Amino acid sequence: MDTTTYPLGESLAETVWDSVIVGGGAAGLSAGIVLARAQFATLVVDGGAPRNGPADHMHGYLTRDGMAPKEFLATGQDEFTGYGGTLARATVTDVRRAEDGVFELRLDYRRLLRSRSLLVATGLTDDLPDVPGLSAGWASLVHHCPHCHGYEERGRTIAVIGSAMAPHSAHLAALMRRHSPSVTFCVNGVEVGAAERRRLTAYGVRLVDAGVTRVAAVDGDGAPVVIEVDDGGTVTCDAIFVGTRPVPHDAIMTTLGAAKDPVSGLVPVDAAGATAVEGVWAAGNVVNPRAQVVAAAGAGCTAGIAMTSWLLDRELAAAVSDNGGAS
Rank of each mutant, 00 (worst) to 15 (best):
M1R: 11
D2K: 11
D2A: 13
G9M: 03
E10Y: 07
A13N: 05
D18N: 15
I21H: 04
I21R: 03
V22L: 13
G24P: 04
G25S: 14
A31G: 08
I33M: 12
I33K: 12
A36W: 04
A38N: 10
F40N: 08
P50N: 07
R51C: 10
P54G: 09
P54E: 08
A55R: 04
M58L: 14
Y61T: 10
M67W: 06
M67P: 04
A68N: 15
P69M: 03
P69Y: 07
G76N: 12
F80D: 01
T81P: 03
T81W: 07
T86P: 03
L87R: 08
L87Y: 09
A90D: 14
T91R: 15
V95R: 00
A98M: 13
A98V: 08
D100F: 07
L107E: 06
Y109T: 11
R114V: 07
T122I: 10
L128Y: 09
P129H: 04
D130V: 04
D130F: 01
P132I: 00
G133L: 05
G133R: 03
W138M: 01
H143D: 07
C148P: 02
E152W: 10
E153L: 12
G155F: 12
R156V: 09
T157M: 09
I161K: 01
G162P: 02
M165V: 10
A166Q: 13
A166D: 13
H168M: 14
A170V: 12
A170I: 06
L172R: 07
A174Q: 14
L175C: 08
M176L: 15
R178L: 09
S180H: 01
S182R: 13
C186L: 14
V187T: 11
G189H: 04
G189N: 06
V192L: 15
V192R: 04
G193F: 08
A194I: 07
A195E: 14
R199M: 12
A202G: 15
L207T: 10
L207A: 12
L207W: 08
D209W: 07
V212I: 08
R214C: 00
V218M: 13
G220L: 11
D221W: 07
V225Q: 06
D230P: 06
C237Y: 00
A239D: 05
F241W: 00
V247K: 09
P248G: 03
H249Y: 06
D250M: 02
I252L: 15
I252K: 00
T255H: 07
G257Q: 01
A258H: 06
L266H: 06
A272K: 06
A272T: 11
G273R: 06
G273M: 10
A274P: 01
A274I: 00
V277M: 03
V280K: 03
V280C: 08
V286Q: 02
V287T: 12
V287P: 06
R290D: 14
R290P: 03
A291D: 05
G298E: 06
G300V: 00
G300N: 02
I305C: 11
I305W: 03
I305K: 13
T308A: 09
S309M: 08
W310N: 02
